[in-house]
């Protein structure tokens, strides 16, 4: 899904990967700055700079990914200690794995709390604790 960025000067919303004014810039690859196609103002693409994420995280006490559109959120994006509600599954997940997760209580509409993400994701659903690898956590869609 294409990502949207809002210019901090003119408020124009655009897709930094395709619509930025600087797509033809020779040093664009890996550059965390992006030019707004509306006004040319240079904004920081937070997704591309770990350092900026770290800094904003320290200031706001938020985790990476928390600002993205709600449709993009997966279980892996929920910070340890927080909880969410299962919305569904990514189509990429194996049907049998999905049925197994549902049988453990991870079905749409059920609340789920994240305990930790390392070394693997540990979640609590009902009164069950489950450990699952990040690949599985990213296939479970949640909203808060």
């Amino acid at each position: 899904m294409s990502r949207q960025l809002t210019c901090s000067l003119c408020g124009h919303t655009f897709d930094p990967a395709a619509e930025a004014a600087c797509v033809s810039c020779p040093v664009r690859k890996g550059c965390p700055l992006v030019c707004c196609p509306g006004c040319g103002h240079v904004t920081v693409d937070t997704e591309r700079s770990r350092l900026v994420q770290l800094a904003t995280g320290l200031v706001h006490g938020k985790r990476r990914g928390q600002d993205s559109a709600p449709t993009d959120r997966t279980l892996a994006d929920i910070a340890p200690g927080d909880s969410g509600v299962v919305k569904g599954y990514c189509p990429s997940i194996q049907a049998s794995r999905r049925e197994q997760l549902e049988a453990y209580g991870l079905s749409a509409g059920r609340g789920v709390a994240v305990v930790q993400h390392a070394p693997v994701t540990v979640i609590r659903v009902d009164h069950t604790e489950l450990a699952l690898e990040t690949e599985l956590a990213t296939a479970i869609l949640v909203h808060r």
Partner: peptide, 9 residues
């Protein structure tokens, strides 16, 4: 196969 186990109390 990815890890999926229950952590019983």
């Amino acid at each position: 196969s990815t890890l999926l186990v229950e952590l019983p109390p």
